[in-house]
Design a protein around this nucleic acid. Structure first.
Lengths: 226, 226
DNA sequence: CTTAGGATGATCGTATACGATTTCGTACTT
DNA sequence: AAGTACGAAATCGTATACGATCATCCTAAG
C-alpha cells in the first residue's frame, strides 16, 4: 500500500520544519541574530509548536542556531573567527576525504571535474559569486564523494553547509583568489591523474583550502591566530 | 517561589533526559541495538514523553542512536565497520588537534603526560582494560586540549565518546598492542619536546592511532578496506 | 504445511492546554 | 532625575490526549 501521498513533502512535520528553517537560514532569509519564535514559525508553517521546537533543537545541535533556555533561539552568530574555525576544520576533513576518495576516482570523474573547472574559468570574466561557489562545490564534490568513510563524508558536508551559511550573510570574496583557485584545481586533478599517493593528495587538497583561508585573513587584516 | 529544588540536575527536563540517556549508553547500560521506547524512558525518569523525545532526536543528531520513523530509536550500530570508520575519523581529527595544540604545550604538560604514560606502563603487568583506557584518554587529552579551534576539539571529543561506547559493548583488546602504544606515546612526547613542526606531530599522532586500528584489523581478520 | 489477509496491540507524531520564566514598561519612592 | 518594585505581555517548557502508523499474531484459504 502506498502510504506516502504524492505531493506532500517527504517525512514528518518535524523534518519538514527542519528543512524549511534550514533552507531559510542558508538562503539568508533568516539572517544571523534573527529571533526564531516558536509560535510564529509554527503558525507560518501551519504546524503546532512541538515539531517546530524539535526542528530547532536539531538545528542547534548542528550549530545553525543558538538556544537559550526560556528565552528562545536566534540564528547563529558569524564572526570572522567562526569563519576561520570552519575553514580550518574543513581543510582537514576535506583533505582527508579527498585522499581517501582518490584511489576510487575514475578517469570519467576527472573529466567531469575538469569540465566543471573550465566553466569556473569562464566565470572569471563576468564574475558571479553565487555561480562560482556552486561550481566550486560541484568540483570538490566529485573529488571527495567516493570517500568510503561515511563519518568523514558527513563532516565534510556539514562544513560546506556551515560555510555557505556564513558566506551568504557576511563575507565577500577576495580579489584574485578565484583565478588562483582554478589553477590549483587543475594541479590537483593532474596529481590524481598521475596516481599520486594519498599523502600527496591530502596535502595538496588541504593546502588549496588553507590558501583560500590565508587570502581571506590577509585581505581582511584579521589578527592571525597564535 | 523557589521552583527548582536544590539537588535537581541543572537544566530543563529535555537536557536532563539527554544527559541521562547518553550516560547510560556510554556506560553500556543501553547496549547497541537496545530499543529506546519513549514511554518507558519517560516513565523511568518521571517525565512526559515530549522532553524525552527531544533528547532522543538530539542524540540522533550526534549519532548515538538511530531513528526510524514511526518505529522508534535504537542505540546506534556497532558492527566492526563502524569501529573502523570511527577510528579512522578520530585518527584524522585528533592528529590535527594534536598538531595545532603542540606549539602551546608547556614543559609542565609534557611532564604530566609522561607521568600518565608511566602509570600506563605500570598497568601492563596486571592489565586492566578500563583503567588503561582511562589513562590513555587522559594522556591524549593533555596533548590535544590546547587546540585553539573549538570545532576540531569538539570532533575529537565526539570521536572518543563514540569509541568508548563501541568498546564498552563489543570489542576487546589486541594482545601486545598496549606495550607498543606506551612506547609510541613516549616517542610522541619526545617529538613535541624537541619542537618538531606541526606536520611531523600530526603525522606521528595519526600513525599512532592508525597502528591501533591496523592491529585490530589484523587481530580480527577483518576484511581490509580497499 | 504454507501463506495471504485482517484484527489487535504497541508505539510513534502532533495538537492543545496550561504552568513557568523572562522581558519590558510603568508607577512609585528617594 | 535615577533607581527600584511591581505587573502585564510574550514566550518558553512540559503534560496530556488522541489520531496515525507499524509490528505481531491469529485465522482461514489454498
Amino acid at each position: 500500500m502506498i502510504t506516502q501521498s504524492v505531493d506532500a513533502p517527504a517525512g514528518s512535520k518535524s523534518e519538514q520544519a527542519y528543512a524549511a528553517i534550514k533552507e531559510k537560514i542558508l538562503a539568508g532569509k533568516y539572517t544571523p541574530g534573527y529571533r526564531l519564535v516558536l509560535a510564529k514559525i509554527a503558525d507560518d508553517l501551519g504546524f503546532s509548536v512541538v515539531p517546530v521546537r524539535e526542528a530547532i533543537r536539531r538545528l542547534e545541535a548542528e550549530s545553525y542556531v543558538t538556544f537559550e533556555r526560556n528565552v528562545g533561539a536566534t540564528v547563529a552568530g558569524i564572526d570572522p573567527t567562526e569563519y576561520l574555525y570552519t575553514m580550518q576544520t574543513l581543510s582537514i576533513v576535506e583533505g582527508a576525504a579527498t585522499a581517501l576518495s582518490a584511489p576510487r576516482i575514475m578517469p570519467a570523474d576527472v573529466a567531469r571535474a575538469r569540465a566543471v573547472n573550465e566553466r569556473m574559468r569562464e566565470c572569471l570574466g563576468h564574475f558571479d559569486p553565487v555561480q562560482f561557489t556552486a561550481l566550486n562545490l560541484e568540483f570538490h564534490s566529485i573529488l571527495f564523494e567516493n570517500c568510503p568513510n561515511p563519518h568523514i563524508l558527513d563532516l565534510v558536508h556539514r562544513g560546506w553547509n556551515r560555510l555557505q551559511a556564513l558566506r551568504s550573510s557576511t563575507f565577500s570574496y577576495v580579489p584574485g583568489r578565484a583565478q588562483q583557485s582554478v589553477a590549483e584545481h587543475e594541479a590537483l586533478l593532474a596529481l590524481i591523474e598521475g596516481g599520486a599517493g594519498p599523502d600527496d593528495v591530502e596535502h595538496t587538497a588541504r593546502a588549496h583550502r588553507t590558501a583560500t583561508l590565508d587570502a581571506y585573513l590577509t585581505h581582511t587584516n584579521h589578527p592571525t591566530q597564535h
